[in-house]
Amino acid sequence: MSTTTPAAPTSALSTSRTAATAARVLRQLRHDPRTIALMILIPCLMLILLRYVFDASPRTFDNIGASLLGIFPLITMFLVTSIATLRERTSGTLERLLAMPLGKADLIAGYALAFGALAIVQSALATGLAVWLLGLDVTGSPWLLLLVALLDALLGTALGLFVSAFAASEFQAVQFMPAVIFPQLLLCGLFTPRSDMHPVLTAVSDVLPMSYAVDGMNQVLHHTDMTATFVRDVLIVAGCAVLVLALGAATLRRRTA
């Protein structure tokens, strides 16, 4: 039998199929209001908690708070996406969709759009709360904080999508969170500056995307203008998200054993 040849009707990214998929993912979430509430409220509650944990040292709250604004969307989107795509794989709907004229890019872009939209809401609320109510002192524009947060959410979506291909059950998918996210959390410079770590760990942290997400947040925190470092950080995080999304697309196979 000859191998399949990609043809016009499904290979290109179709805007209406992507939009339909994004709308479908959001509709699924709408039937699960508790998940939406948890996704949106927990980052806000954690920021409030953090604010009063560091009640005596507002400088520490500034540093950690800004970093967390970037880390929260990454973690939530990672978890939600990995479980959602795993469910898609195990329920047979993925097989059905891939037997239909749906491009893999349509599916991935649909998920990225839907969770990206949710991430905007989550990040906007958390950033607004931190800056205006909790007194997070940012030198730069809060819009730039939001931009980094959104890119982090996309990176989380991308990582979750990619990792779900290697999880056979929800138990495994959840375990990928500590495996993929925790090392980045420890090495991203949140606990101690990356330059103070063991040289090997500094080198490792240089290739982990979360390091640049946190660094980007700190650039906004300390500088009024967009610095060259900020632009570099944003480009690296965005590039990583696109790269991992492409890797995620490669894990979607129309033909499976």
Partner: peptide
């Protein structure tokens, strides 16, 4: 051939 994109 089975799996041809136009069949989907």
């Amino acid at each position: 051939p089975a799996g041809h994109p136009t069949l989907r």
